[in-house]
Design a protein around this nucleic acid. Structure first.
Lengths: 341, 341
DNA sequence: GAGCAGTGTGTGCACGTTCCCAATCCATCG
DNA sequence: CGATGGATTGGGAACGTGCACACACTGCTC
């Protein structure tokens, strides 16, 4: 007889208690920190756990504690963006690993359509999740606020649009990063610096543009509005935006593109227009995603510390679960110089 | 007073029963299919559910049913590959959505290191998951077999290495796809066709190579071993492999590269060697990933129906959960012609 | 030696659900 | 008219755990 496939009934806390010669209560105490347990009991229980192969039943525990000991990773973004943009993956992996270190499973929730959003919102507010890590690039999204209002701990990636919001978030210092890049371009002697911005309904997009304006003004250069076009971080937008720039200001000698993915599009557009990079036009990106090193030429960019961002998101969420108040973390960026400037 | 953040106690099945004027049992029956419930009761219960906003407590349910009503998506792959290869994302999204349609949450588990593998294996075999969707590109991986032996339903993406295995899997018809591509290259008049294979410890890699050999032999061409090098689906391997090909067989006029990602590397290597694509060397990829359309020139490739693959994986898993036996599904591929040939 | 504080241990209850069995109702049949 | 049986309903028990409480024991103080 082949009985592979027949799952045996897993050992319970009772089995462990019997094996160790103690009561359920003592086993439970060992499982939850080991306070008020004598050394002999502790040892006996641990031995029994090893022997029986006991693993706590999370459902029974959750039923009584009211916690689920799991968190959700919510991505509210059109589906194509998820494939196209490697940054989501980096964040997803970072969060998964940071949580794994705490033995907390991560539930992946993709809310592309309005229908999915509704379903997911109901799932979360039903109390099936202790908290939510939220990733979205158009931060006007009300979902963070809604979940927070419903009493669900949330940490958002990127600054929320509404300034009065009490939602936790982790973001890179967009404005400072933009300043660094534009100063770098100026230091190369470039004076006609264009910009393809991020979405201007998000603080990330707004702040990068603000840094650009600030440095130019500071350098005594008037901001020429023909050098400013807006995009949405996608590759296609980078290409289209750069084409507009070339039309509006054919004399540009540098472009600051607010995401690496858009910068790839910019390279395509510039090459098609016969401009050499970086000789004719220097190109600066933002993110330092995997795309930056794979591009030809490799891309000078502003590095966002994604590994730290995901680690901080998890840290803030766990802190909230521990009763602390929501908080904000701004992380520094760094200029990475490569061939495109 | 601001009491946002105070989660109210959610309504239970008792509340619904009281509201509807029936017993818990009746509510439970409505929740689980509505058999043996009179129309008036059914209506009353549904009204009460709407009124109270009741959502079933999955933990309490799982505790008694022994099911968790959630499945895991397990990726056993070095971490970099997860970022680099867009195909994983496509699969991940496909599975998430197919499961969402059944209201089944997906837990993401990334097993890059040996330590993570152990932790995850313990988690799964502890019964916290009803089943596992497994994605790996080196299918010699014993984890599928192990989980299956432990009684956990598994569906693997890609054919397992061990032929005696009873593990469910979904795969594209690798051999047939390879045949189509090589026939296509032959039809263009190419006669010195190189190949950069996938990992040869996986059926996918082996089968694509087999298809290549088969068509060449069928066409009366001897297989020149200098035209065969092996890779691992990564971009870097594609570049290195193509360089080796150019050294071993400088007269090649086409390359069949066993993944689109490797094909990107091949384009780089060929361009560096001064070969025009497709005039001097035609390049054919495999996958039809997002990379294929973003490459310059765009890539002729063999389309793997990823959307159908993920849908079938979920279907097979749910079938197993319903008591059906493991099964295998092979899906047809399709040649997509673009600029590189 | 009684009282007390602190440590260690066992037990009953509750969490919210499903499952199972018994009870009831009603229509049909002999 | 009683028996039969299917449809419908209610309620007890159980799932495995954490928590509150009661109790036992120790060592110390007065």
């Amino acid at each position: 007889m082949n009985n592979a496939g027949a799952r045996r009934r897993p050992p319970t806390i009772h089995d462990v208690a019997r094996e160790a010669g103690v009561s359920r209560g003592t086993v439970s105490r060992v499982l939850n920190g080991g306070h008020y347990v004598s050394p002999p009991s502790l040892e006996a229980v641990n031995a029994a756990i090893r022997k029986t192969g006991y693993v706590v039943n999370r459902h029974a525990r959750s039923l009584i504690t009211g916690r689920s000991d799991s968190v959700g990773f919510l991505l509210t973004e059109p589906q194509e963006r998820f494939f196209e943009d490697p940054n989501f993956n980096v964040l997803l992996r970072g969060c998964t690993q940071a949580l794994a270190a705490h033995d907390i499973p991560l539930l992946l929730m993709l809310a592309g359509t309005e229908d999915e959003r509704r379903r997911i919102k109901r799932f979360i507010t039903a109390g099936h999740l202790d908290g939510v890590l939220l990733v979205t690039s158009h931060s006007a999204d009300p979902v963070a606020e809604e979940l927070h209002k419903a009493g669900v701990p949330v940490v958002q990636c990127g600054k929320p649009m509404r300034s009065g919001s009490k939602v936790s978030y982790v973001a890179a210092d967009d404005r400072d990063g933009a300043r660094d890049m534009v100063r770098h371009l100026l230091s190369l002697g470039r004076r006609r610096i264009g910009i393809v911005t991020g979405p201007l309904d998000s603080p990330g997009g707004v702040d990068r543009l603000a840094g650009y304006r600030e440095v130019l003004t500071e350098a005594g250069l008037a901001v020429d509005e023909r050098l400013v076009v807006s995009g949405d971080y996608s590759r296609a937008a980078g290409e289209a935006g750069t084409e507009r720039l070339l039309t509006q200001a054919p004399d540009l000698d540098a472009v600051f593109v607010a995401s690496d993915l858009m910068a790839l599009g910019a390279l395509t557009a510039l090459r098609r227009a016969g401009r050499r990079i970086p000789e004719d036009v220097a190109v600066g990106g933002f993110d330092d995603s995997i795309a930056a090193t794979e591009a030809t030429p490799t891309l000078t960019t502003i590095r966002q510390p994604y590994d730290r961002i995901s680690a901080e998101m998890v840290r803030l969420l766990l802190a909230q679960l521990g009763g602390e108040d929501p908080a904000a973390v701004i992380l520094p960026t760094e200029l990475v110089r490569r061939e495109s400037t």
